[in-house]
Design a protein around this nucleic acid. Structure first.
Length: 424
DNA sequence: CAAGTCCCTTGAACCGTGAA
DNA sequence: TTCACGGTTCAAGGGACTTG
């Protein structure tokens, strides 16, 4: 419990708000400085009892951001009144502060050890916060289908004009950004902390969360947006992002390769009487790259030209994607043969299927290899002896990094591990 | 429409740093 | 030292698109 010191479902008997004076003034200042409406005078609210949901005529329920902010300001004013009324008898404040030091202000921040219900609530809160931030900063044009209609009708609708915008050149905790985050969190908190409110929309009623949780979720969204922004506006960031993306794509292609080969294992087993799944580690799969790992535009272009030429692309097809396949340098002939056998089983099964799948990206084999040191522990039959001698042997660091079992699994390497590798 | 292919978005995990 | 936080990297899941 923190900030508003409130737990959903706790009811009106819940203790006083636990805002520290600093937190409180901060929150208040943010609203005073950002809202379009002045704070209502305190005497506007005859009942200073905190968190008793104000009785609102349903017809007057907030419908747009401004209304919601007004409602929120009203609640804040109530909090202020409450705070003033009770600040003298807050003598155990120090005690409380100590207590709050040991307990985390978060409940749902970490997904670990959360129940199913908590995870679900966490997820919807993340959605809500993100949506709220999008609206506040004008990231989205509409959040409903009906909006598009009114867009064309009155293009200058005030609600689509962003009231605030993030400063992506700063971090999350820059005042300007924090202000937006706080406002969004306040709004969502007010709408969702009490399951009896009509604005309540969480999947489970008895799951607690804190204002700090909401802020954290908002920060995550901010960081994602900032990353995108940076990639769009900063060359080195763009390069990083591209690199990262291509790495991710390659990893995914390796995984897909593995997945496909796993599907052929059953038939391979009955045909060859041995289980090839021991070589199906994602990292040991063939690489499928669309460009070499370099920022040098000329090199990338040259590579692309090689591939298009090899794939005989021209005219309409000149821009089609092509990938080069890079076999792992470490693998023995036996290992690559197993992969080939698996792939041909897979291919045959595919052809036998009635439905024709979408055409796949062309793969070109120029006979090149990648020289990544394989992770995990390899079986000896998989490793080419020549490669081992040339690359690993005598290299202290690599000897530590590279690991291999001493025995082959049943059915492999029997035909002669060394003989196999001499050929390579 | 379903299935297959590709990959983007974004939540989660991880890592380094600076404050307490 | 631990803790919290910001930033970076990884990877699940879903969306876009194509084809029969």
């Amino acid at each position: 419990m923190d900030f508003y010191g409130h737990t959903p479902g706790a009811g009106p008997s819940n203790p006083q708000p636990q805002l520290t004076p600093q937190q409180y003034t901060m929150a208040l200042q943010m609203f005073q400085s950002t809202s379009h409406m002045p704070l209502a005078p305190p005497n506007y609210f005859p009942h200073p009892t905190p968190f008793t949901p104000p009785v609102i005529d349903p017809a007057l329920l907030p419908t747009n951001t401004d209304d919601r902010i007004t409602a929120l300001e009203r609640e804040l004013a109530e909090m202020k009144a409450e705070k003033n009324a009770t600040s003298h008898d807050q003598e155990p404040a120090s005690k409380r502060r100590k207590k709050s030091k040991t307990t985390s202000p978060y409940i749902l921040k970490d997904v670990k050890n959360l129940s199913k219900k908590q995870t679900a609530v966490r997820k919807s809160l993340m959605r809500l916060i993100k949506l709220e931030l999008s609206t506040l900063t004008g990231r989205i044009h509409s959040d409903s289908a009906s909006e598009s209609e009114s867009d064309s009708g009155s293009p200058s609708r005030p609600s689509v004009v962003p009231a605030m915008s993030f400063d992506f050149s700063s971090n999350v905790d820059a005042a300007q950004n924090l202000k937006i985050l706080t406002r969004a969190a306040d709004l969502i908190y007010q709408e969702q902390y009490d399951s009896t409110k009509t604005t309540f929309s969480l999947p489970h009623k008895n799951v607690s969360f804190t204002h700090a949780d909401l802020i954290e979720f908002g920060k995550t969204s901010f960081r994602n947006w900032k990353r995108v922004y940076k990639a769009e506006n900063d060359d080195t960031a763009a390069a990083n992002r591209r690199k990262q993306a291509s790495k991710g794509r390659q990893l995914m292609r390796r995984k897909e390769l593995k997945q496909g080969r796993l599907g052929a294992v059953k038939e391979y087993k009955s045909k060859y009487k041995r289980d090839p799944s021991c070589i199906l580690e994602t990292d040991w799969m063939t690489d499928e790259i669309s460009a070499p790992d370099t920022d040098n535009e000329n090199k990338r272009k040259a590579h692309r030209n090689l591939l298009t030429a090899a794939a005989k692309l021209d005219g309409d097809t000149i821009d089609d994607p092509v990938w080069e396949i890079l076999h792992p340098a470490f693998q023995s002939i036996e290992c690559s043969k197993i992969k080939r056998d698996l792939d041909s089983i897979k291919k045959k099964a595919k052809e036998e299927r009635k439905k024709r799948p979408r055409v796949t990206v062309r793969r070109i084999d120029l006979g090149n290899t990648h020289s990544r040191i394989p992770v995990g522990t390899l079986w000896p039959f998989m490793v080419g002896l020549d490669w081992y001698k040339a690359t690993i042997e005598g290299n202290r660091d690599l000897e530590d990094e590279f690991s291999m079992y001493t025995q082959n699994p049943k059915g492999f390497g029997d035909e002669g591990y060394s003989a196999d590798n001499e050929e390579e």
